[in-house]
């Protein structure tokens, strides 16, 4: 708004009209775009329920895929395979992520090394998942000589670590200094204070962060393409290729068979329900944690 030259009353009224018009246009645009954005979400969820629910039955959860051309079959092995890979990823990713978060909050605060690691975590968070897949392939699959559940778990754990690190750090930062001082004043060593006081006080937030990281990698496909690879049969061996729900959805979605498309929709519905449940659990958990904190 540069200095306005003198205007006649008429042009002043025009200016006023234009200003209020612009104002209304912007309001309308922002409402419109919000609706436009919510539309795909509702469409996607709607389609998932519409297409997926009709294909969900007991077989889906108990049978392994049927050979091409045969009807029926399910994704039991993919669901179990996903669980195996995710448990593996959590076993590696959660301790390392929490440990790094503890370091950033309790040891590296205000230090150059801490800042550099914090930045590394943010950058690692942005690395495309397919690149993580290549790295896990080169590191694990090539060494072992074949695709494996282990490689898939490692790839997913790499994706979990930076998220968990940052959440842990942020949640620990909310623990008041006075609470830590209480522990130090009792002669409790630092390691015990961190474990039994700081982490325990921050635990609702940290658990939330871990579940969000879990939900995020649960749907990842790209890093599993050439690590876990997929498997049409049951497998429990961590050194062998293993099926995973997102991989199976992909395989079925790009296949030419209607029967498989049907299963892909059902698989996607199950996947999204799993993610929705964990996100909702997080909401409930986080809400309760806040109440319980007292202050």
């Amino acid at each position: 708004m540069s200095a306005l030259p003198k205007r006649s009353p008429g042009s002043e009224r025009a200016l006023k009209l234009r200003r209020s018009f612009t104002n209304h246009v912007v309001t309308a645009l922002s409402i419109g775009s919000t609706i436009l954005v919510l539309a795909p979400l509702l469409l996607i969820l709607g389609y998932l329920f519409y297409k997926g629910a009709s294909s969900l039955n007991l077989d889906f959860f108990t049978k392994i895929p049927a050979p091409v051309g045969e009807t029926g079959g399910g994704m039991a092995n993919s669901i179990v395979g996903s669980a195996v890979v995710l448990v593996l990823a959590s076993l590696i990713g959660i301790p390392v992520g929490i440990g790094a978060g503890v370091y950033l909050s309790e040891y590296g605060r205000g230090q150059t090394l801490g800042n550099v690691i914090r930045f590394t975590a943010d950058v690692l968070n942005g690395v495309p998942s397919i690149v993580v897949g290549i790295a896990a392939y080169a590191l694990v699959v090539v060494k072992q000589g074949h695709f494996s559940a282990l490689a898939g778990g490692i790839a997913l754990s790499i994706m979990m670590v930076p998220t968990i690190t940052r959440t842990t750090e942020e949640m620990l930062a909310t623990v008041p200094l006075a609470v830590r001082e209480a522990a130090y004043g009792l002669g409790i060593p630092k390691w015990r204070t961190v474990l039994s006081v700081s982490l325990r006080t921050a635990s609702p937030g940290i658990i939330t962060g871990c579940m969000l990281a879990f939900a995020r990698v649960a749907g990842e496909t790209a890093p599993l393409l050439f690590t876990a690879f997929g498997n049409q049969f049951w497998s429990w061996d961590l050194r062998q290729p293993i099926a995973a729900l997102p991989l199976q959805i992909y395989t079925y979605a790009v296949s030419p068979y209607d029967e498989w498309h049907r299963l892909a929709w059902a698989g996607a519905l199950v996947l999204i329900l799993l993610i929705m449940i964990s996100v909702t659990l997080v909401r409930i958990f986080a809400g309760r944690g806040m109440l319980k904190g007292g202050n």
Partner: peptide, 27 residues
């Protein structure tokens, strides 16, 4: 040497019992 601070600072996630026992339990 025990210490009592300006603002009450009980451990928020511990029960009353655990708060009192904390100096011993955590050691």
């Amino acid at each position: 040497i025990g210490m009592v601070f300006q603002r009450p600072n009980p451990f928020p996630t511990m029960s009353i019992y655990d708060n009192v026992a904390s100096g011993l339990k955590l050691n």
